[in-house]
Design a protein around this nucleic acid. Structure first.
Lengths: 106, 106
DNA sequence: TATATTACTTACTTTATGTAAGTAATTATA
DNA sequence: TATAATTACTTACATAAAGTAAGTAATATA
């Protein structure tokens, strides 16, 4: 039984990315900071899960939540430095998907 | 409401990768073909889910299942060409995880 | 005054995942 | 020879995660 264990750091990173919606949230935020409702509608996630994911990602230090005390209040989500370094990874997924995902796979 | 929709091919690719265990299975198979029980023990997945995932990945054309009619029968799973092209992506995740995942995150 | 918007939360249902045991074929061990 | 072990799974059931829909509080607009 070949038990070549997987690196726990890799496993953790994969755990973050393999939660539903997190990849899409990060991908959307590569275009700059966005508000809750704009993320909600662009990726088609429910408010319940978006709020959950944003809290998780903030805790991981991948995104930042900023409150602008205007009236009405404005809240913006953006990538931290840690989050921005996921760009090459996202671009790889994009590249791969353009080549290997065919119309009939959709 | 900024509705810059996400490319469906990207979304599909992300959907595959964001299923629990698929990333780890692909990552393990980058080292060459492996048998069911060796995947099971190296990534710590249950037989039930491993069998489910392997079927999915075979259907997506990412892995190949080969039966060697020896006695006892031997079944090996390996990456197809489509699967192998996920290597750069996996390496990006690996690289990122080594830099950004800290001991205290584990 | 009624309706809309934003950024959520709460309650409930459905789907996915985890756990444990079972199976059939074959081989190894006592 | 009987018992245990291995491989590649499947089945049954419990728990956790995700989906759906409605609700809330603050403010703005018609």
């Amino acid at each position: 039984m070949n038990t070549s264990a997987i690196c726990p750091k890799f496993e953790k990173a994969m755990g973050i990315l393999s939660q539903r919606w997190t990849g899409l949230i990060i991908y959307q935020l590569l275009n700059g900071s966005q508000r809750f409702c704009s993320l909600e509608s662009s990726i088609g996630i429910s408010g319940r899960l978006l709020s959950e994911r944003l809290k998780d990602l903030e805790q991981q230090g991948i995104i930042r939540r900023e409150v602008f005390p205007e009236t009405p209040v404005r809240i913006e989500y953006s990538l931290t430095e840690k989050g921005k370094t996921l760009e090459p990874l996202m671009k790889e997924i994009e590249k791969w998907s353009q080549i290997w995902i065919k119309e009939q796979d959709l």
